[in-house]
Design a protein around this nucleic acid. Structure first.
Length: 311
DNA sequence: CCCAACGTTCTA
DNA sequence: TAGAACGTTGGG
């Protein structure tokens, strides 16, 4: 069969249309039927897209409001929106996904302190994803190939949810329940397996590329660079402060000296408190005894799950 | 503003 | 190189 129009040779009469083949091989009758089919499919598709878009706009009337709010927060340098806005070259938002559950982020947002792939980005991303979902569903029959792309996104989203959902324990709701910053960081250290974040376009990222601070979670520069999301070189104030050694470290609160509550009153630091400005030697944090550079490597290097910031 | 204590510099 | 002294930061 040539061309699938129902005729076999140029001299044949079309078996479908019963007429000699035309310039495109099939007969006029076949051409007419084909033309009608194409026309209907095209009309249906455009109509469905228009309808679904209208419906989506009704479903998410506050998208503009959210966007404005997100932009307002982003001025503080906090990653609180899909990275596409951070990028000079925006990427498809279907590649982004959520980090943490909706409910877990409420406290942080209300405080206006920090947001990392939390509620607001969830709202935006979900709406975006659902748009694609619905449109994809409608076009499934006529656009088989595009549905493959969509399903990839769906799978990635659901996988991420399974993987990341437990991690929301590091965020606000449990902190409100009394979990200390230290415990938050310790819990993060417990994650040892790399996480494949869909918004990284399939680049598996170790949790160590995220910096968790009492103020929230940030992406390490190195992580952004690895993912090609920022241009080299990128230095944020905090990192440069550490590099320069001007940032004051805090006690870990976990070591034996840190747990000690009373000064010995006998060591030189206790005796010279007025002039020495030093904590009792028996209470000097083990972490602070180490050189700052050692602690710094632990923070910046994305090579391991463990990362430590100022406690 | 005060105080605790970290980081840096000085000194023995 | 360790300890003392001082400047400075960060939290209350």
């Amino acid at each position: 069969m040539i061309g699938g129009y129902g005729w076999q040779n140029a001299d044949d009469i079309c078996q479908v249309g019963g007429e000699p083949p035309g310039p495109r091989g099939n007969c006029r009758r076949c051409q007419t039927e084909e033309s009608l089919m194409m026309s209907n499919t095209s009309k249906l598709t455009e109509q469905q897209i228009t309808q679904s878009t209208d419906r989506l706009e009704k479903d998410n009337p506050k998208d503009d409001e959210l966007t404005a709010d997100l932009e307002k927060r982003s001025r503080s340098g906090i990653i609180n929106e899909p990275i596409s806005k951070v990028l000079k070259k925006p990427r498809s938002s279907t590649r982004f996904s959520t980090f943490g559950s909706t409910s877990s982020m409420n406290g942080q947002l209300q405080n206006g302190s920090i947001l990392v792939y939390g509620k607001e980005s969830t709202v935006v991303q979900n709406s975006t994803t659902s748009k694609h979902k619905r449109i994809s569903h409608m076009l499934d029959k006529s656009l088989e190939s595009s549905s493959e792309v969509q399903s990839e996104v769906h799978i990635a989203s659901s996988d991420l949810q399974k993987q990341v959902e437990p991690e929301h324990i590091f965020l606000s709701s449990e902190r409100e329940a009394g979990i200390s910053d230290m415990e938050v960081v310790s819990a993060a250290e417990a994650i040892s397996s790399p996480v494949d974040l869909p918004f990284m376009s399939g680049i598996p990222l170790n949790p160590g590329v995220f910096i968790m601070t009492p103020a929230g979670i940030f992406m390490a520069d190195s992580a952004l660079q690895m993912a090609g999301l920022v241009e080299y070189p990128l230095q944020n104030d905090l990192a440069s402060a550490i590099h320069s050694g001007k940032k004051k470290r805090k006690r870990c609160g976990m070591c034996e000296p840190c747990r000690r509550r009373l000064n010995c009153e006998e060591c030189s630091s206790c005796r010279n408190r007025k002039t020495g400005h030093q904590i009792c030697k028996l209470r000097k944090c083990e972490e602070l005894k180490k050189k700052p550079t050692a602690a710094l490597e632990k923070v910046i290097l994305p090579s391991g799950a463990a990362f430590r910031w100022f406690q």
